[in-house]
Design a binder for these strands. Structure first.
Lengths: 178, 178
DNA sequence: CTGTGCATGTAAATCGTTACATGATTGC
DNA sequence: GCAATCATGTAACGATTTACATGCACAG
């Protein structure tokens, strides 16, 4: 699923402008996928060319003109076909966790700070998910929200309960260096 | 942290060939970062140019020649400097979860199959982590392993306990369609 | 006799972000 | 006055993957 197909998917939920699609990426696909204007607008132009979406211009007096996109029947069919494909495996990349392999090069304070910030980062994630999903959203979206919260809560718990394992290690290094 | 710096980091743990570094990505950075030969070899050549690693050729009779890389003092310093930087935020992208937003386009069987495969995928992840981290590895690596297992276990639990939320939804659609 | 492991590398293609370009409006 | 929101787009750049190119050894 690339930006192109996700734009198509978002348009199955209702007409939208490129700007609104970008917001949908932030709201509905929150923490799951992000896309910049630099990828959304070209995708939308290409989809229009291929007749998978149609576009009507709305002139506005006090704002720049809008281009409102709607998915076509052909677009809907293409998207449903895309959904049939086997999903690609998840991709996860964490700078913080990769750094932790090399904690022996860091001071205890640095490790502590890194862990604190990582925990805080996950807590912010949870807040963003909770406020974004309370009440509003389809059952599927609530399910996904709950998933995000469950996984991040587990991460926080693990970090809090086991951080001493790598902090203690650094302590020893500090002591040994004296 | 790009491939370049991770190669440097892996070389702080001992000399290695490009081929062995690739394996280290799979073993030590398992599920955290992957890199292909197409990125490792050019990175190693560049690092050699910059004198951050040194390279000695080992001719082998029954195998192609090896190039064994060692990190230099300058390389070690550069890597430690890199570690001081604020880590970039995590990146997570899941095709499967993104697909789930659009479960209303899928049949109940498809949803069930997708969930089964996703759970199985996480279970395989956990097996890979467990076998890879039992006994061997530094405390930091064991900590990371434990983290991976904790997070994935939570994911599996959530999926098992809440899958009915999106499966039930599909049921209703099927029934309504009759 | 076929697949897997060892071993290195290049070039093209992919997919995306960042920065740039433009400009009005509204809230603090 | 300054930041944020609305609104669209292009071009350059970046990082990495994929496919290609080559080749021997060993196990099943």
């Amino acid at each position: 699923m690339d930006v192109r197909n996700l734009c198509l998917g978002i348009l199955t939920l209702g007409d939208a402008t490129g700007y609104e699609i970008k917001k949908a990426f932030q709201d509905r696909l929150n923490l799951l996928y992000d896309a910049s204007f630099g990828s959304i607008y070209p995708a939308l132009n290409k989809l229009t060319e291929e007749k998978l979406v149609s576009c009507r211009a709305e002139t506005q007096t006090k704002r720049p003109d809008k281009k409102v996109y709607s998915i076509t029947e052909a677009g809907k069919a293409a998207f449903i076909k895309e959904l049939q494909k086997d999903p690609l495996p998840d991709k996860f990349r964490s700078d913080t966790l990769a750094t932790m392999i090399f904690t022996h090069f860091l001071s205890r304070d640095q490790i502590t700070r890194m862990l604190d910030e990582y925990i805080q980062y996950y807590e912010e994630n949870i807040n963003a998910l909770s406020t974004g999903c309370d009440l509003k959203g389809s059952p599927a979206e609530q399910f996904l929200c709950g998933f995000g919260v469950a996984v991040r809560s587990a991460a926080i718990n693990y970090l809090k309960e086991n951080r001493h394992l790598i902090e203690a290690e650094a302590q020893q290094v500090d002591t040994a260096a004296e």
